[in-house]
Simulated scan of single mutants.
Amino acid sequence: MKRNLPPTRDFKISFSFRLPSSGRFSATLTALVLATALYFFYAAVIANDLETKILVDIPRDSTAARASRILADRGAVKSPGIFRYWLKLARAESRIKAGVYEIAPRESVFGVASKIVRGDSHRIRLTVPEGYEAARIAALAESSGLGASAEFLAYVAKNGLEGYLFPETYFFDYGSTAEAVARRMKEEFDRRITPDMLERAKETGLDLRRLVILASIIEKEATKNDRRLVSAVFHNRLKRRMYLESCATVLYALGKHKDRLIYADLRVKSPYNTYLNYGLPPGPISNPGMESIMAALYPDDSAALFFVVDETSGTHIFSRYYKDHLGVQKKPAAQKTTSR
């Protein structure tokens, strides 16, 4: 028996894909390119979302990939991939320099990349005032993150650098040692002392060491405007073989600061006490600046042998004769303990 079967049908599965018109495709591609360009431009202009400056340490022999990752981990750049891409565009992937870099908030990729390629490592500023002793410079350097003060003082003592640490503003790489700081200051001193200055020192009866010793005393004794007069007093006393009677040398011998010396202090036993010992002390008592060095070389044309501080004005009163000096001392405003 035959069944009436339904007529057969052909089943087809069809897929259709319509390509966009050339105009629409061109617009889509343009938008994609622009979006990509804007993204890279934004990443280049604004590298990070930092709120404060940070220091980032890029170790030696860092590859571009490692440096990029370190910067990204610290938040210095948003994307390590984009940062590395910019390095590649600049052909600087192999020119990365180790160092500690200061990255500012919202600094651009260009700025960050330029720093690590140039080696523009973070530097520590150290300003050393005129007249600081080595111990004070050591403490100042240590507080600035430039090594241990004990290391600094050990190097100074070993090489006899007290007096030769030139006071100036210096910039040191992050991580510089105390020895490197002391060595740099001595190099600056050597650079500043010229052959003409050494020749002039001979004319005044001084060698380099005696010049530095005298300048170190002038630095501690004089005010800004009377260095050459103070120098004249000491030169005159040396020629006459008189005691220098410098209170600054007594303070150095005591090893501590005092606003006012008493007569007992003037009897402290020390080769640095110029109230008890003729001539210059055995070494510098401070690290003098150029103005005091030049004052030691070119004293004022004065016959003065004495000076005393006027507490009212803070200036010195100079005298040629002892009786005049005593007369000045009797005035209430004069500070007897700083007289010469």
Rank of each mutant, 00 (worst) to 15 (best):
E168A: 03
E188I: 01
F189P: 11
E179W: 00
Y164Q: 09
E179M: 10
R200K: 15
R200C: 11
A148C: 06
A138G: 09
E130A: 06
T194W: 11
D173K: 07
Y132Q: 06
R183C: 14
V128E: 02
D196Q: 15
A150D: 11
F166Y: 12
V156A: 05
M185E: 04
D173M: 09
T169N: 00
R191Y: 14
R192E: 07
S149V: 05
S176L: 11
K158L: 12
R192L: 06
K186L: 10
Y155R: 03
T177P: 06
A135W: 11
G163H: 02
G163W: 07
A135D: 05
R184H: 03
S121F: 00
H122S: 06
S143N: 05
A150F: 09
V117L: 03
T127C: 10
G163F: 13
S149K: 10
Y170S: 01
M185C: 04
S176E: 08
P129M: 09
M197T: 09
E133T: 14
T127W: 03
E188L: 12
Y170A: 05
Y174T: 05
S149R: 14
E199L: 15
L165N: 10
G175F: 01
P167W: 03
T177I: 06
F152G: 04
T169P: 00
R125D: 05
A148V: 14
I116C: 02
E199K: 15
S149P: 03
A139L: 14
R183Q: 15
F172T: 01
D196V: 08
L161T: 01
L165R: 01
R136S: 07
R183I: 13
A141F: 11
M197W: 09
L198D: 15
K202L: 15
E151H: 02
E179L: 13
A182F: 13
E187V: 08
M197R: 10
S143L: 03
I116E: 03
F172E: 06
R118M: 12
I193K: 05
L146E: 10
G175C: 07
E187H: 13
A138F: 11
P129G: 05
E162N: 11
V128C: 10
V156W: 06
R192M: 14
V181G: 06
N159I: 04
T127V: 02
P129A: 02
R191I: 01
I137M: 02
P195T: 13
F166V: 01
G160P: 12
A154P: 01
E151S: 15
T127F: 02
E168W: 03
D120T: 04
R125N: 03
G147H: 04
D190R: 14
K186I: 08
A139V: 09
K202R: 15
A134Y: 00
R118D: 05
K186P: 04
A180K: 01
L165S: 03
Y132F: 14
T127E: 02
D120K: 01
A178H: 06
I124F: 05
T169C: 00
